[in-house]
Design a binder for these strands. Structure first.
Lengths: 335, 335
DNA sequence: TCGCACGATGTCAACGATGTCCCAGATTGT
DNA sequence: ACAATCTGGGACATCGTTGACATCGTGCGA
């Protein structure tokens, strides 16, 4: 494996008998090079396996790359990576590349990871905020780097954001349950501390209040400890002296647990989850759904918008949710 | 929004009253700078919102970045994304970043996408080969860029690869069916043309041949048209004059379809899928499983190994699979 | 007390590509 | 026929950082 060193513009130029500027013209400018010269240059380039060095190019062009960073908490969550797919697609349409970095859901590493990306001179930053405070990004924003927060609003930072209709979505789901007579409705949330879960909890309470139910605390299972399984929470609800006749989950984690417990219960307990999932249709599970790809695309579009017009206003977008009824949410309470 | 320009080493140096080299030392070398000077430099840097420019740094250091590219066919396939998560984790341990690019399953765009990444001077390349020929990467490999192919071997290219125990895994699954008396076993494969599916099909035939069944063509549903739904294929198997008593699927696409059709069949038809999936346990679906995270980690480790020792031999790794019995695969044939 | 090692800092060039300016010759208009 | 314009191509500086090497005190052993 003779690891020879990489060819540069100058090497190609020497072999082709032209100046390096001419080679540069062939590869970038496309301006004013005779067909004959171009052929000769391309021939030499191929022979030397030349590949233009984007590091140098970008440096010369003022330190601007064509990559956009997406900072994600937990890479193994299917929700986040579908968002990433949306971002990648939209960026690809504009010739931009996505760099993906994970903070492993650790608030402390967020700033460190983001810093490393900014040092790479990413063109824009899309992130799912994990830490309690994104004010450290303010300087960068003022320097002109678009920052878009996804799924949750950034804290202490003026930035575009794309979030779901969490509160309205859950309220609609709960309303569909109260409409068929349910009053004792459980709610699963874990981790309960984060923005999305707080919003969804609020939606749950909203809808119950509308039918006069204000005492909901004993039907709420709010945890911040990921080791508490959703199955356990569901069982603890069913073990109540006055158990709920329906359960709503704040995320797909809750759905997975609920499915396991509820499938062979008699009398059946109604269930509605948040986040759609593979096979939910086969299982007949009703869910509050939305389009995660669209979430990503929208985030990318906002970033691209700021790149095109740095002085545009910051925007908050809400991605709509919709209730998909598949059976589990349409079970009426026992007579 | 006053978009002021970015501060450089020189700017910080001027403000701190030192040379730019000293500032460089503070941010990189960490070598021999007095505490007092360091304080002063860091102060100026913060005031100017200075951030070192990795483009310039990497250029100066010989055009070597700390990013590794992962080229993926279809970003929305959870399998690939979990692999990506594994890669990202392993790389993070070594201070490297992952860039993700998608070819949208188009063989034509593979070379284009890869080229763009190589121009960014990625340190190594991990890819899921889509095109029929990866020989275009040979030059780059000779230049010392580690290339690792994942899930399928690269064609016409000497490169490390990490693949699953496809053939053995499926053979084991089919054997578990023949062991309890099944002889009429269907096989679903779509897209059937790719390496993994061909291997799995071979495993299926292997195991049937062991029990003397050599005529399997009418039980094989091999499609290359993604618009042919797995449900349709399953139904067409069941509609045979002599329908199979068990079905094996070549991927999770097949499983999803099979689950929908098979759940309320009487007499029940045994089923084993390839690829584990969320809720497979709740549904009692037996599958041939493996660890996709480990697949990614292994790929990353191979790349890192080549970076550490450029002259190391290329390696082929097989990630083990295992049969997880959850009920659907243990149904005996009707008496 | 002198030489020398060492710590703290500075000078300068170079990484690879490109923007700016410049030039020689060919072509065009009047 | 001559100036004006265009076309292909080159020289040189430059983007922001760092490696190699130089410089200047200071303290310490001989």
């Amino acid at each position: 494996m003779t690891t020879q060193s990489r060819a540069t513009l100058a090497d190609v130029a020497r072999l082709a008998g032209v100046s390096s500027k001419t080679v540069s013209r062939v590869f970038a400018d496309a301006g004013n090079v005779s067909a004959e010269t171009r052929e000769r240059v391309l021939g030499s380039a191929k022979r030397l396996r030349f590949r233009p060095n984007n590091l140098a190019r970008n440096l010369r062009r003022g330190g601007v790359t064509n990559t956009v960073a997406f900072v994600i908490g937990d890479l193994t969550n299917p929700f986040y990576f579908t968002v990433a797919a949306g971002i990648e697609r939209e960026l690809a349409l504009h010739g931009l590349t996505m760099v993906l970095a994970s903070t492993d859901d650790s608030p402390d590493s967020e700033e460190r990871v983001v810093d490393a990306l900014l040092a790479q001179r990413v063109r824009a930053l899309v992130l799912i905020p994990i830490a309690d405070d994104q004010s450290y990004l303010d300087g960068e924003r003022q320097l002109g780097t678009p920052v878009v927060s996804v799924d949750r609003p950034a804290r202490n930072l003026i930035a575009d954001s794309v979030v779901l209709q969490n509160r309205v979505g859950v309220a609609e789901a709960v309303r569909s349950l109260t409409a068929i007579g349910h009053r004792k409705i459980g709610f699963l949330s874990n981790p309960a501390g984060i923005y999305t879960q707080r919003e969804r909890l609020a939606g749950y309470r909203d809808a119950l209040r509308e039918v006069g139910v204000t005492e909901t605390a004993h039907w709420e299972r709010l945890d911040d400890d990921p080791s508490v399984s959703a199955e356990y929470s569901v069982r603890s609800l069913l073990a109540l002296a006055d158990p709920p006749t329906a359960i709503v989950a704040g995320n797909n984690r809750g759905s997975a647990g609920a499915v396991r417990v509820l499938r062979d219960l008699d009398p059946p307990v109604a269930f509605i989850g948040f986040d759609d999932f593979e096979l939910a249709d086969a299982l007949g599970i009703s869910v509050v759904a939305y389009d995660p790809i669209e979430l990503g695309r929208t985030a990318a579009r906002l970033a691209l918008g700021h790149l095109a017009d740095p002085d545009s206003f910051t925007t908050q977008v809400e991605i709509p949710t919709r209730l998909i009824q598949r059976g589990s949410g349409e079970i009426p309470p026992p007579a």
